[in-house]
Simulated assay, not measured.
Amino acid sequence: MSVPRPRSRTRSCLAVAAVGALVLGWGGPALAEQQGPTTVEPAGAAFSAELVGSAIFTAGDVTITCGISLTSPGDGNNLVPDAPDNHNPDGAVGGPINAPNFTDCTTDVILVDATVTVSDPVWQMTMQNGSPSLATMVVPAAGIVVNTTGLATCTATVSPTADAPIEGVWSNGDPASTLAFDTATAVVVEGGFGCPNVDEAGFTATYAVTNADDPASPITVSG
C-alpha cells in the first residue's frame, strides 16, 4: 500500500465535518416561511422515523454514507399531541422526539474511522402544513459530536453554542409518510495538524415516518 499524500489528511478531516451533518442535516437555509393552520393525525399516535436507503453527507470532495438512522417512541416522546392540541389554527404542531441514532457509516477516505455521539437524547420536532409542508427538528446546542481516528484526530461539534433548527419537506403517504432533507448545516471542527477550518457540510436523506401504534393508519399533516 502506498503512503497517503498530505492531501489525504485534509480530506480525512473534511470527513469529520461531513459526518457532523448527521444532525440531520439539518440547519441550512430555511425554506419559505410558512404560517396558517396545521393538523397532525391521528391524535395521540406514537411514531417512528427510519432512514430509507442511505444518508449521504458531503464536505468538499469527501462523501460519507450511513446506512442506519432511526428514532422510535419511548419515555413519552415521539407522540402526536392529543386532541385538541394536534391542531393549531395559527401555526405548527409539535413536541419532543427521541434523538435519532446514526450507525453503519463509511467514508470514501482510506484509513479514516468516525464515531457519532448524540450528546442530548431529546430533540424537538414541529410540523407545519403548507406548500410544501415542513417538518423542523431542533437539535440542542452541541447535541451531536463527531470524532475521527486514523490519519488525523479531530472533533466536530454541531452548533456548539445554540440550538440548531433543521428543516425537511414532509409528504403524506400510506402507510408511511416521508420526510426528506437536502440541506447544509454548520459545524465547528477542532483538533491538531490536518484539521481544517471547515464550517459547513451538506446532508441528503429521506425518512419513512410510520404510526408505531397502528401502521395501517398513517401519520399525516393537513390544514
Rank of each mutant, 00 (worst) to 15 (best):
L51A: 01
P175W: 06
V16Q: 13
W26H: 12
A164M: 15
A152C: 15
V189R: 09
T149Y: 01
S133H: 01
C13K: 00
T115H: 07
T38D: 01
F47G: 05
L111I: 10
D104I: 01
A208F: 06
G20V: 09
S159P: 02
G76C: 14
P42H: 05
G36K: 13
D182I: 06
G25H: 08
S48V: 02
D174G: 09
F102V: 15
I219D: 01
G28P: 04
P4I: 08
S8L: 12
S12R: 12
P89Y: 07
A55R: 12
V3R: 05
I68Q: 12
T117D: 15
P100V: 09
E167D: 14
T157C: 00
G76A: 11
T115C: 00
Q124G: 14
I144V: 15
G95A: 08
W26Y: 10
P29F: 09
V23Q: 11
W123K: 08
A176N: 14
V188R: 13
G74A: 03
P29K: 15
T38E: 04
I68W: 05
S217W: 01
I144G: 00
L70K: 14
L111C: 10
A156Q: 06
V138I: 15
E41G: 04
G44K: 03
T117H: 13
M1H: 11
G27F: 03
A152M: 02
G194M: 04
G143S: 08
I144E: 03
Q35E: 14
T161E: 06
F203S: 01
G143N: 03
V138F: 03
N211F: 03
A212C: 08
P6D: 06
P165K: 01
D85Q: 13
C154Y: 09
Q34A: 14
V188N: 13
A43R: 07
D174W: 01
L14F: 09
V122G: 05
S12N: 11
T136R: 10
F102R: 11
T204K: 12
V93M: 05
V139H: 02
T210L: 08
D108M: 09
S133P: 08
C66I: 13
G191A: 06
V16M: 14
L22W: 06
V209I: 13
A59F: 00
A15S: 15
A45P: 12
D120W: 04
G173T: 15
T103V: 14
N88T: 04
R5I: 09
M1C: 07
V80G: 02
A208C: 05
T155H: 02
V80N: 03
D75W: 08
G25L: 07
I56D: 04
L24E: 09
